[in-house]
């Protein structure tokens, strides 16, 4: 098995992270913002796995598992908040949340 330079994987992770960041900044739809956060978390996991494979240790993959767990919990709560906002305001515009009180 030939080796892959670590810089390739890390560069791809940075490109994906930057794309997710631009997505969060540009979109106003809350679902797309959550999707972009998922892209950023996935890029962070890719960086962890790449760095773990640099040393041939399983620690990077374990951190990816924890990122996966965190992403799943975040998506569950975030989507519940989006559904609730849609029932109240009948929109998923991110600006609608500025009318919340308390």
């Amino acid at each position: 098995m030939t080796t892959l330079p670590m810089e390739y994987g890390l560069t791809l992770a940075m490109v994906l992270f930057a794309l997710g960041l631009v997505g969060v900044l540009v979109r106003r739809n809350l679902i797309f913002m959550l999707v972009s956060v998922e892209i950023m978390l996935n890029a962070a996991g890719l960086a962890f796995v790449t760095a773990g494979m640099r040393w041939g240790q399983p620690d990077g993959q374990i951190m990816f598992l924890f990122i996966l767990t965190m992403a799943a919990a975040e998506v569950a709560v975030g989507l519940a908040i989006i559904v609730r906002l849609f029932r109240q305001e009948n929109t998923i515009d991110a600006d609608a949340t500025s009318k919340m009180r308390g």
């Binding site: 080796t3 892959l4 940075m14 960041l21 494979m53 640099r54 041939g56």
Partner: peptide
């Protein structure tokens, strides 16, 4: 605006990353 900000961040990190010689990764399967 967001594209310029993202491109600046990307260029900075990638230029920092590629400063040294490439190191091999993924030699052995875990």
């Amino acid at each position: 605006g967001p594209s310029i900000l993202g491109a600046i961040l990307l260029a900075l990190t990638v230029s920092l990353l590629w400063r040294g010689a490439p190191t091999a990764a993924g030699g052995a399967e875990v």
